[in-house]
Amino acid sequence: MLNIALVGAGLMGRQHLGAIARSPRARLSVLVDPSGDAEALATEAGAAWAGTLDAVDPARADAAIIASPTPLHAAHAAPFIAAGKPVLIEKPLADSRAAAQDLLDAEARGARILLGFHRRHGGAAALATELLRSGTLGQPVAAEASCWLCKPDDYFDTAWRVGPGGGPIAINLVHDLDLFCSWFGPPARVSAMAGAAVRGLGVEDTATVQLAFRSGLLATFTVSDAIAAPWSYELTAGENPAYPQTGEGSYRIGGTLGALELPSGRFWSHVGARSWWAPMEMQELDVPDGDPLDRQFEHFCDVIEGKTAPKVTAADGWTNLALLDAIRASLEEHRAVEVDA
């Protein structure tokens, strides 16, 4: 039984706590969080509790999950990495590329770092990866993602959600950007526009992003947390029971041999000749089910046991931060910006 240290008992920390509890391969050994109810959570899970990381001996854990506030990720991961323990760090990797540098350097020296972009472990991601790898779509040419959702007014009562980094680009779009980079390779150039016409807060409520990949594929993203609509990954994938599933699609990938809608798994291709005059057929492909957080944790157990390498790395997290920096620069400078990834 693997002993897991969990740092952070906030929203995502509790999600990880559930994944640990559901796994037959691991147990929570210690929960680190200064909040008032963290000790009760630890007791309920049969684990030790510590208010600060200074009270924890990293050598007594087999691995750690870092789900503390983003600016603390690097500092909280450091003692476990120094002790040679694998770490699962909740996304984003850090609050800046400068803050992430130590993690990137540690990975280069052999540290096993898994970044918590859990959608990579979902069924829709697995289906797209397989179809792209097999050549079923032909050459990928273009892709688009819609992230349209409606956050309630009281969501913005929390101060940090109305300032820089609190909008849907940094909170929601980062997941879509990571998946597209996992499928299509390194990003090359980005152009973005954003607005706050609905709420008028100090952060965007709507944005569009055009992204060119080094492979030549072109992608378009639209994101808004002010639209009453069924087209976002959360509402279409059915991977998180907290969100009502709509059965719609939110991603489309177009290739020279066919086009795929996700997470629905609808695949379109021509019958006979590749021509706009030829009829097309649609297949409903099977999308593997299962909770991506549970799949992610089982993958982490494999990483801990030395059975596989991390699927999402610190280098992937660095690319995501570089892409966010380029989007910010494009918004500020009103031009297309090269991605320094």
Rank of each mutant, 00 (worst) to 15 (best):
E90M: 10
K91L: 07
K91Y: 03
L93N: 08
D95F: 04
D95R: 12
S96Q: 09
S96A: 09
R97W: 12
R97N: 15
A98I: 11
A99C: 05
A99I: 02
A99G: 02
A99Q: 13
A100Q: 04
D102Q: 11
D102S: 13
L103M: 05
D105R: 13
D105G: 02
D105T: 10
A106C: 06
A106W: 06
A111N: 04
R112F: 06
L115K: 10
R120S: 08
R120T: 04
H121F: 15
G122C: 14
G123P: 13
A124S: 15
A126M: 12
A126T: 12
A128E: 07
A128R: 11
A128C: 11
T129H: 15
T129I: 00
E130Y: 01
L132S: 09
R133N: 11
S134F: 02
G135W: 08
T136F: 01
L137Q: 10
Q139I: 14
Q139E: 14
P140K: 11
V141N: 12
A143W: 12
A143V: 11
A143N: 14
S146V: 11
S146R: 14
C147V: 15
C147G: 03
W148D: 05
L149R: 06
L149N: 03
L149H: 09
K151P: 01
K151Y: 11
P152Q: 03
D153Y: 08
D154C: 09
D154R: 11
Y155I: 06
Y155W: 15
D157K: 15
A159K: 05
A159T: 06
A159R: 08
W160K: 13
R161Q: 09
R161K: 14
P164R: 15
G166A: 12
G166P: 07
G167K: 08
G167A: 03
I169R: 01
I171G: 00
I171H: 06
I171P: 00
L173Y: 01
H175E: 10
D178A: 12
D178M: 13
L179P: 05
C181M: 15
W183R: 03
F184H: 11
G185I: 08
G185M: 05
P186K: 04
P186Y: 01
P187C: 07
M193Y: 01
A194K: 07
A194W: 03
A194P: 01
G195R: 14
A196F: 00
A197F: 00
A197M: 01
A197D: 09
A197S: 12
G200T: 07
G200S: 02
G200L: 01
L201K: 06
L201P: 00
G202P: 11
D205G: 02
D205Y: 05
T206K: 00
A207H: 13
A207L: 12
A207W: 04
F213E: 06
F213K: 06
R214Q: 12
R214C: 08
G216R: 04
L217F: 08
L217H: 01
L217D: 02
L218M: 06
L218P: 00
A219G: 10
A219E: 09
A219M: 07
T220P: 00
T220G: 15
V223S: 03
V223I: 12
V223L: 05
V223N: 07
D225H: 12
I227T: 07
